[in-house]
Amino acid sequence: MTALSDAGGHVLVVNAGSSSVKLAVLDPVSGRRALTGLAERVGTQDASVRIDRDGERSTSTPDDVSHAGVIEALLALMTGDERSSITAVGHRVVHGGPTYSSSVVVDDVVRADLEALTPLAPLHLPGNLAGIDATTAALPDLPQVAVFDTAFHRTMPAYAAQYAVPRSWRDDLDVRRYGFHGTSHRYVSGAAAELLGRPPGELGLVTLHLGNGCSAAAVRGGRSVDTTMGFTPLEGLVMGSRSGDIDPGVIPYVAERLGVDAAEVVRRLNTESGLLGVSGTSNDMRTLLEAAAAGDEDAALAVELFCYRAAKHVAALSVALGRLDAVVFTGGIGENSAPVRAAVLARLSVLGVHLDAEANHANGATTGGRISTPGGPVALVVPTDEELLIARDTADLA
């Protein structure tokens, strides 16, 4: 992070969830952070807020623990110069439904549309809307911009976006594959093109966002043509606590045998499955790698399943590209776990991708992100920066 510059205005980026609010004030050109902030346990009497800048932390306990209250408390921890430097507010919004294919300035019509889309993301959109409402009230003279996780994937062709379900489900209920993590996939695909020194329009990439939530995307010519997440973020790869792909017939079977409803089974697929479910101990890849090395067979199986499923989806997504120029690793695991990248790439040798073990061990730091040997598709490590992408979209529209 750095002190405020004289180069121009800053963007306040807000990521409001159901029980937390993350924010950053940053320069949309350089990406330098003037400060970051976090409100935790929003809506409870244990709510707390903090601002971090230049190695120093300011904290407070808000009197009003609502989204509006904690955002006011976060703004109150900023200096007058920091607040006055903000020229626009950008919001991460999880779902844009079938309507929004790009970022948009929030007005009354957009606000009403997002309210109507809440059934598509009932766990996320209420928090996103609360963040928009709170910053609008606190900073009424500044434009508010919604940047959608789903927007990047609106370019998927119909054969990739649609499920083979009754047409009325698509037409009347908006059941289709939306995809998520779009801001991350969009950012790293552009950054990968820069590292490769080639125009995005010439490239076929598979971007792998691996963290507690995981997804992969096929990016051809700078546009998403397929992705692993679908109607919800539950589809696709094995994740920290999400199952990823599963036969839908499992849901009524488990519900009947356990005496619970379908919603409870889906809750457990979201929160008690994935790495956590297979290992029985943890959703943290670092913990599982250590446990596997110490002989924990369940931890080893969880890691192997995670890596196998990731490689399997990379291979499948290469079909959508017609060619594979690069595999791009990002996210907390993708950027930092050399053993996971090695295990994924070992299974992708069939596509001609071969690991450079030394470069991989250094997370690509000394090779411009490249962790593969010459002569085939490239493997890259590219740190994601969703906040910067949100800030740039916001600055472009505000």
Rank of each mutant, 00 (worst) to 15 (best):
G280C: 06
N283I: 01
A316Y: 13
S282R: 04
A338G: 10
G280W: 06
L317P: 03
A338F: 01
G295L: 10
V260A: 02
V278N: 03
G274H: 00
R309W: 05
C307M: 07
K312H: 12
V327I: 11
T287A: 15
C307Q: 05
G295V: 13
T330G: 05
A316N: 08
K312Y: 12
R286E: 05
L317R: 01
L288F: 07
P339E: 02
A293D: 15
L324R: 07
A302Y: 15
R341D: 11
D284R: 05
R286N: 07
V265G: 08
T287M: 07
A302K: 07
Y308A: 13
R268H: 12
M285T: 14
A320Q: 03
T281V: 13
E297R: 11
L317Q: 04
S318M: 08
G295P: 04
T281C: 10
I333V: 15
V265K: 05
L321Q: 11
R309V: 10
R267M: 03
L345Y: 12
R268M: 14
T271G: 12
V344K: 02
I333T: 03
A326N: 03
T281Q: 10
E335Q: 10
V319P: 00
A338E: 09
T287P: 02
E290D: 15
I333S: 06
A293T: 11
A315R: 11
V278G: 10
R268Q: 14
K312R: 15
S279F: 03
V278L: 09
V266Q: 09
H313W: 14
R341C: 09
E297K: 09
V314P: 01
G274P: 00
L305S: 02
E335P: 06
R341K: 10
R341E: 02
S318L: 04
N283A: 14
D284V: 05
A293H: 06
V340N: 04
E304S: 15
L269C: 08
V328L: 04
G277S: 12
Y308S: 05
A320N: 02
L301H: 08
V278D: 02
R268L: 15
A343C: 02
G334E: 07
G331P: 06
C307S: 12
A292F: 11
V314Q: 00
E264F: 00
A293S: 13
G274I: 01
V344T: 00
L289P: 03
E335G: 01
G277I: 01
T271I: 03
L288N: 07
L305C: 11
M285P: 04
G334V: 04
L289V: 07
N270S: 12
E335D: 09
A294G: 06
S273Y: 06
A326I: 04
V265N: 05
V265A: 11
A300T: 15
